[in-house]
Simulated scan of single mutants.
Amino acid sequence: MPAPKRPRLPWGALLAIASTTFIVIMTETLPAGLLPYLSSGLGISEGTAGQLISVYALGSLLTAIPVTAATRNLRRRPLLLAGLAGFLVANTVTALAPSLPVALISRLVAGAFAGLIWSMVAGYVRAIVAPQLAGRALAIALAGTPVALAIGTPVGSWLGGITDWRWAFGVMSVLSLITMVWALVIVPDAPGHAPGKRKPLLRVAAIPGVTPIIATVLVWMLAHNVLYTYVAPYLTGFGIPLGADTALFIFGFAALAGLLITGATVDKALRRSTLTALVAFIAAAALLLAGGAVTAMAVVGLVLWGLGFGGAATQMQTALAEAAGADTDAAVSLFTVAFNLAIFAGGVIGALLLGSIGATTLPIAMGAAAATALAVVLVSRRAAFPSGR
């Protein structure tokens, strides 16, 4: 009797979805790398330019839950293509924006389409792979996040320096069109949820484990975004002799390494890998705070920051999928709200700290929020982050 075939990963489809997550994150974080150029090009302060990230997050925050509820019974590939089309239009408008209000509106629209894509990715990936490969497949699909941070945002910063910030958004429009064609050809379709299987979001939030995971996402991503949004002013304020593009390269490549480590461990050691990532975040905040005195400390801090961040989305969405089961899409819409609320709050809080006290407070805020997330994971050892998994 022949041995049963081992399930295989649909690499082409997963890489197309990874390209999609790359576009989502790249579009979100481009202003962080382009902050000085946006400031001078639009005649605004760096704190105001940082709100181009906050308003993107606001778009996701406002639309994630209603869009998820409205599209849960729709087939997945058409939704993916609709999301990519939204990014094509929004990034084109941003690239051509004659003023800050137009740029803010286009960023708000882009954020709304980000909410659509993030709310469906985890469930879509799990629908097209064997259950025992779900964690690894999700790590591949979310690889666009650290690649965007490692390569995309620094390259966008470099491109803005040698040409104009508008070209960076134009490139994103072209990439959105290419990924649409790729997804249409190679990504298999998957059904949505049958109408009778929908569960109200309040009942989804009440599923054991879901609320602690969402709380962890909120404070962890706040820790990240309060510094990431203003990495250029942080470097200047501490007198660290690194350009924003160089710092983002260091952070991003470390984040890619963090994702690879997470992909290899998340299916067997979810709790341990999550705790390790958060400890790395706290250590990074301490080193980044000391980086004004010794540049090497800042560099090590950037590396630890990236290692801790790289697998965070995979860890959190894997935990949510295991806790929520058939209601993963609804649970991930709550994840999207928390994630983007953290981005929005990070941009606003960072701007307030930057304008009132200065850049020295940013690593402190990062470390305090990461410590809070660590405490939530430590006490959530049953349904959310079970021990001995």
Rank of each mutant, 00 (worst) to 15 (best):
F335R: 01
A283S: 11
A280N: 01
V299S: 09
V279P: 00
G358W: 03
V303I: 15
A280W: 00
L278R: 06
A313V: 11
L302M: 15
P363M: 10
A286V: 11
T328R: 15
L287Q: 12
M366A: 13
A345F: 04
T314M: 11
G350T: 10
A313H: 07
Q315W: 00
D329L: 09
A296S: 15
G347A: 09
L353S: 10
A338I: 12
Q315V: 00
V348G: 09
V348K: 13
T360H: 07
I349V: 06
V303D: 12
F344T: 14
G311V: 00
I343S: 10
W305E: 00
L289V: 03
L362F: 06
G358S: 06
Q317D: 02
L307I: 12
F281Q: 13
G291P: 05
A323G: 04
T360Y: 03
G310H: 04
A312M: 10
G355E: 13
G350E: 08
L288P: 01
V332H: 14
A312D: 08
L362V: 02
V279I: 14
G291S: 10
G325T: 03
G291F: 08
L287F: 11
A359N: 05
A342Y: 04
A342P: 09
A284G: 11
F281G: 02
I364Q: 14
V348F: 13
A351D: 15
G347C: 09
F339M: 15
T318Q: 06
Q317W: 01
A359D: 02
G355W: 09
F281H: 15
A280M: 15
A324E: 13
T328H: 10
G291N: 12
G306A: 13
L289K: 09
A296E: 13
F309R: 02
I349Q: 04
T361C: 04
V332P: 11
A330W: 06
G350W: 09
L362C: 07
L304C: 03
S333A: 14
G310F: 02
T318G: 07
M316G: 06
A330S: 14
L352M: 15
I364P: 01
A365R: 08
V303W: 14
G346C: 07
A296N: 06
G350Y: 08
V303A: 14
L334N: 05
G325K: 09
I364Y: 08
A359Y: 05
A359M: 06
A323W: 04
D329P: 08
L362P: 04
G367S: 09
A331I: 07
G292I: 05
L289P: 00
F335H: 10
I349C: 02
T314V: 14
Q315P: 00
L278V: 07
V332L: 07
A285N: 15
M366L: 08
M366I: 03
A342C: 11
L362I: 05
F339I: 10
F344N: 05
M297Y: 11
